[in-house]
Write a protein that binds this DNA or RNA. Structure first.
Lengths: 114, 114
DNA sequence: CGGTATCCTGCTGGATACTG
DNA sequence: CAGTATCCAGCAGGATACCG
């Protein structure tokens, strides 16, 4: 084990810690993809309940991952926006989407063989 | 929401599912980095107990993420090796290490300001 | 050295109902 | 529409001790 490998493991573990749980990455992805309203976000993520979304959004707001705005012009409209910090997960998300896609392809091919 | 966005969310969620928990990615990383013995792997991952490592390795062996070999020449030696499947997580791990590193830099700078 | 066994805790997160 | 409140189960995972 070299010194810089230790650093890398720690960096990896830090990232895993920050992204912990089932929902943070999908939410980040959803908001970065242009969903801004609570319902929009919820509908874009299969399986998430309003409770979990609410919890995570609060958490992410505190950690500067999203920006929440109450925009009262005529009526009250609440908007969630991505931050730079949020967008910094882009490369990770891309790679995970890539992996997931090719994994599906892989499974499909195996089934065809059988 | 377009059709291909749905696909992407699902791909993302699949990947999160496969990599679920605190330990799979660090273990994959460790083995891909050339650690092959149980103790080596354990020592390369801060905080992991033998129980967790054992559990995860078993799981990963079943899912073809690692190959376990009992090499009895003179004495019994057990070796864990990475598989292609295991190595397919390389890009994700790289990106997560990158993120973790620059995140540390970021924190450090903020502290210096204060 | 390479693990198991046992025990236990807390947190994640699901279900459901309700609110301003 | 954008959440809260409540209740509860399951399991990830820690501590510790032990085994061939």
């Amino acid at each position: 084990m070299q010194r810089n490998q230790k650093e890398e493991v720690q960096a990896l573990q830090d990232t895993i810690y920050v992204l912990g749980g089932k929902w943070k990455l999908p939410i980040i992805n959803s908001i970065c993809n242009g969903n801004h309203r609570f319902k929009e976000i919820q509908q874009s993520i299969p399986g998430i309940t309003s409770r979990m979304l609410s919890k995570e959004l609060k958490d992410m707001e505190m950690n500067n991952l999203v920006k929440r705005t109450e925009d009262r012009d005529a009526e009250i409209v609440i908007i969630y926006e991505s931050t730079d910090y949020c967008r910094s997960f882009g490369p990770i998300i891309s790679e995970m989407i890539n992996w997931g896609k090719s994994h599906r392809e892989h499974i499909k091919k195996q089934k065809e063989k059988a």
